[in-house]
């Protein structure tokens, strides 16, 4: 069925707007990527790629991959990438499971302290994170967890935000009758949780997973306070350490930023369906 001319014009206009805004969104990324390929001499003299006599007026011969090469050979950024991947993936998987379990318990189990615990979880939401840095640091010191990966993962295992998010998601989405039927059929609690509850809140799992992964990937201040060995530092800190006091190697900084953005882009592409459906689930009643 062919579209009416007015609908086609309307669609074309929408696409033009979308393309314009996409380009605007992509400009900083393109700038960052082109900056990572430039020599320091070209850094401030050309906005994007260095101009010259080459194809499209670009000096292709002045582009370089040396910043990436130096990052991996001189700075050893590979170790930081590995640290970041480990910290972000393990934190996000564990935090998602623990938050889902916590939310499930608070929404579907009847026990004495349920209201009290829910109130505590809600109250914890209003405490600003930076306020917990100093007591958290002292606690980790007393537990002997400073300068360890566990010192970064354990405090983020069951954040109040996640527990409350899953509680709300499960309150309406998981019918009590379904759980009762499963119990009557002889299913254990763990089995019910993993085989029935989790698939129902699958979009929320995807969204929360990517949120926690991103938060952990970008976590900047806590690793600096908890970790001491340079070889345990995650990517965000390692890149920040490239910033000098007296001089900055901007090309290397930009190359490091490209490396830090790439895994997140790939992950988002893999999970965009879950992420978007997770964000929009519950947005429309009906």
């Amino acid at each position: 069925m062919s579209q009416r001319p007015s609908a086609r014009i309307w669609l074309t206009l929408i696409y033009i707007f979308l393309i314009i805004f996409s380009v605007i969104t992509l400009i900083p990324f393109f700038w960052m990527f082109s900056a990572s390929l430039k020599e320091n001499t070209d850094f401030f003299s050309s906005l994007f790629l260095p101009t010259g006599d080459g194809f499209l007026g670009i000096a292709w011969d002045r582009l370089t991959l040396k910043h990436f090469y130096n990052l991996f050979t001189e700075i050893g950024i590979g170790q930081a990438v590995l640290n970041s991947i480990f910290l972000a993936s393990s934190t996000s998987v564990l935090a998602t499971i623990c938050s889902a379990m916590g939310g499930y318990a608070l929404s579907k189990y009847q026990f004495g302290a349920r209201t009290f615990i829910t109130t505590m979880v809600l109250s914890a939401l209003i405490i600003p994170g930076p306020l917990l840095l100093a007591p958290g640091y002292q606690l980790l010191y007393n537990l002997g967890l400073l300068n360890s990966y566990a010192g970064l993962i354990l405090p983020h295992l069951a954040p109040a935000f996640g527990v409350f998010l899953f509680r709300q998601a499960m309150l309406n989405a998981v019918p009590g009758e379904l759980l009762e039927s499963a119990r009557i059929d002889g299913a254990g609690e763990i089995r019910i949780f993993f085989t029935m509850v989790i698939p129902i809140v699958r979009p929320m799992i995807g969204a929360y997973l990517i949120i926690t992964f991103l938060a952990s990937w970008n976590n900047f201040i806590t690793p600096q306070i908890v970790l001491q060995s340079p070889e345990k530092l995650p990517l965000a800190v390692a890149i920040n350490n490239l910033k000098g006091v007296y001089a900055e190697d901007y090309g290397m900084l930009m190359a490091g930023t490209v490396i830090s953005v790439a895994p997140m882009l790939i992950l988002f592409l893999l999970m965009q369906k879950e992420f978007i459906s997770g964000l929009t689930s519950g947005a429309v009643k009906g």
Binding site: L82, S90, R202, I210, S229, L267, M271
Partner: peptide, 24 residues
Amino acid sequence: PPGLAVILFLAIFSGSVLSFKKMT
């Protein structure tokens, strides 16, 4: 979800590599 599978794989893989790596 495939994303979760990827993250799980990353966690197991990176954890294994780091546990075998000798830290100074």
